[in-house]
Amino acid sequence: MMDENPSRFPSADLASSATSVHRCRSLSHLVAVTVLYCNQMEERVEMLNRWTEVAEEAKSALGNLLGFSSIMHALGSPHIQRLKETMHAWRQRFTDKAFQFEARLRPTLDQMEEGRSQEAPNTTVPYLLPLCYLADGWEAQDALLYWERGYAEAGLPLLYRHLSAARDTAANTERYARNAKVQLGDMRFEDIPLDMFRTQFHLKFLWGSSGATADARERHTKFQQILSALSRRCEPDDT
Results as ranks from 00 to 15, higher is better:
residue 72 M to Y: 06
residue 233 R to P: 00
residue 146 Y to V: 13
residue 194 L to A: 14
residue 20 S to D: 07
residue 225 Q to I: 00
residue 232 R to K: 11
residue 44 R to C: 06
residue 203 L to K: 07
residue 69 S to I: 07
residue 199 T to K: 05
residue 164 S to K: 13
residue 195 D to I: 04
residue 85 E to W: 05
residue 19 T to P: 00
residue 200 Q to S: 14
residue 220 H to R: 14
residue 202 H to M: 13
residue 97 K to E: 15
residue 13 D to W: 00
residue 168 D to V: 01
residue 131 L to I: 14
residue 7 S to D: 14
residue 221 T to L: 09
residue 144 L to S: 03
residue 49 N to H: 09
residue 88 H to I: 10
residue 182 V to E: 10
residue 239 T to V: 11
residue 43 E to H: 08
residue 81 Q to G: 03
residue 5 N to Y: 07
residue 15 A to S: 14
residue 168 D to N: 10
residue 154 A to C: 08
residue 5 N to W: 05
residue 215 D to C: 07
residue 223 F to H: 09
residue 133 Y to G: 05
residue 181 K to Q: 15
residue 57 E to H: 11
residue 115 G to V: 02
residue 6 P to L: 05
residue 230 L to E: 10
residue 61 A to K: 11
residue 25 R to T: 09
residue 139 E to A: 13
residue 9 F to V: 09
residue 102 E to N: 11
residue 207 W to L: 04
residue 237 D to V: 02
residue 47 M to C: 07
residue 84 K to N: 14
residue 144 L to Y: 09
residue 215 D to R: 06
residue 141 Q to K: 11
residue 59 K to W: 14
residue 80 I to C: 04
residue 3 D to I: 08
residue 130 P to V: 02
residue 148 E to L: 01
residue 44 R to P: 02
residue 219 R to Q: 06
residue 213 T to P: 00
residue 30 L to A: 15
residue 184 L to I: 15
residue 54 V to H: 03
residue 38 C to H: 04
residue 145 L to Q: 15
residue 150 G to Q: 01
residue 4 E to L: 14
residue 36 L to D: 01
residue 231 S to K: 00
residue 94 F to Y: 15
residue 46 E to Q: 12
residue 95 T to F: 06
residue 173 T to Y: 06
residue 97 K to R: 12
residue 70 S to M: 03
residue 70 S to T: 04
residue 155 G to T: 01
residue 149 R to Y: 01
residue 223 F to G: 00
residue 137 G to E: 06
residue 202 H to T: 08
residue 153 E to V: 02
residue 83 L to C: 01
residue 239 T to H: 07
residue 39 N to P: 00
residue 157 P to R: 05
residue 101 F to Q: 10
residue 148 E to A: 07
residue 160 Y to N: 13
residue 103 A to L: 10
residue 214 A to F: 00
residue 13 D to A: 01
residue 184 L to A: 12
residue 123 T to L: 03
residue 186 D to W: 03
residue 112 M to V: 02
residue 157 P to S: 06
residue 224 Q to Y: 02
residue 189 F to R: 04
residue 173 T to V: 13
residue 76 G to D: 07
residue 70 S to V: 03
residue 69 S to M: 08
residue 148 E to W: 00
residue 45 V to G: 06
residue 46 E to N: 08
residue 80 I to Q: 01
residue 8 R to Q: 12
residue 219 R to I: 00
residue 175 R to S: 14
residue 95 T to K: 05
residue 239 T to W: 07
residue 31 V to P: 03
residue 92 Q to S: 12
residue 62 L to Y: 06
residue 119 E to C: 00
